[in-house]
């Protein structure tokens, strides 16, 4: 049965079109791809498997093709795909920009920390930087998994952060200062209300 125009419009305005995200507030910019049902459905279906595949590549890197670098990129593409279809703001509410910046540094630090640990570990025989044998009997395995995790974190965070930077640039069409000015009186009014309330 073909869908009537009214039905389609009803569908489009329904909030479940972007289920799983915060409700659109009034006056907010419309999300991209709002009417593209197939794209939205397909992305919602695919993204969990992208993440699953990313985890598989990450932790299976010493048994099959892959490793931290590839896993990081795959993980990041999951977020980016989501952001392209549902708006980068929605993907930022899941994986905030600030986290990306921290995880980027954390990944590098984790890698370097494994190296420093093998330098000072009590069980070490050689005291060499990044000598995983210092991590115990299966040290090579532990070392590789930890180091790859560091690479994966850093790469995923790097790619997501870069995507946000470009998404920010392309969203800059709305005047920035005006929005800040618009927001300030409201904030002042609300804080005044709060003060008067606490005074009661």
């Amino acid at each position: 049965m073909p869908i009537t125009k009214d039905q389609r419009d009803e569908w489009r305005t329904e909030d479940n079109l972007h289920a799983g995200g915060p409700k659109m507030s009034e006056g907010a910019e419309p999300l991209p791809m709002r009417g593209k049902l197939v794209l939205r459905g397909a992305v919602r279906l695919v993204v969990p498997f992208v993440f699953l595949f990313g985890l598989y590549v990450q932790f299976h890197g010493d048994y099959g093709p892959g490793g931290g670098f590839q896993a990081g990129v795959i993980f990041a593409t999951g977020f980016i795909l989501f952001g392209l279809i549902f708006g980068s703001q929605l993907s930022e509410s899941v994986f905030p920009e600030r986290w990306a910046e921290r995880l980027l540094a954390l990944g590098v630090l984790l890698y370097a920390a494994v190296g420093v640990f093998s330098l000072v570990a009590p069980g070490a025989q050689t005291f060499n930087f990044l000598d995983y044998n210092a991590l115990g009997k299966n040290g090579q395995h532990y070392g590789i998994v930890l180091v790859e995790l560091g690479v994966g974190l850093a790469v995923a965070a790097a790619m997501v952060r870069l995507y946000y930077a470009f998404a920010d640039l392309s969203e800059l069409s709305a005047p920035v200062e005006a929005a800040i000015d618009d927001a300030t009186p409201l904030a002042n009014a609300a804080s005044r209300n709060k003060d008067s309330r606490s005074a009661e």
């Binding site: 890197g61 010493d62 048994y63 099959g64 093709p65 892959g66 490793g67 670098f69 980027l104 540094a105 990944g107 590098v108 890698y111 370097a112 190296g115 930087f129 990044l130 995983y132 090579q140 395995h141 070392g143 590789i144 180091v147 790859e148 560091g150 690479v151 850093a154 790469v155 790097a158």
Partner: peptide
């Protein structure tokens, strides 16, 4: 060391310095 993927072994273990350097480059 029973690591079937020799590429990962070389990148992460034998060439650990290089890979650390690459990660720093990404950063």
């Amino acid at each position: 060391h029973h690591i079937p993927n020799a590429v990962t072994m070389v990148l992460a273990s034998y060439r650990g310095y290089d890979t650390l350097g690459e990660t720093v480059v990404v950063f």
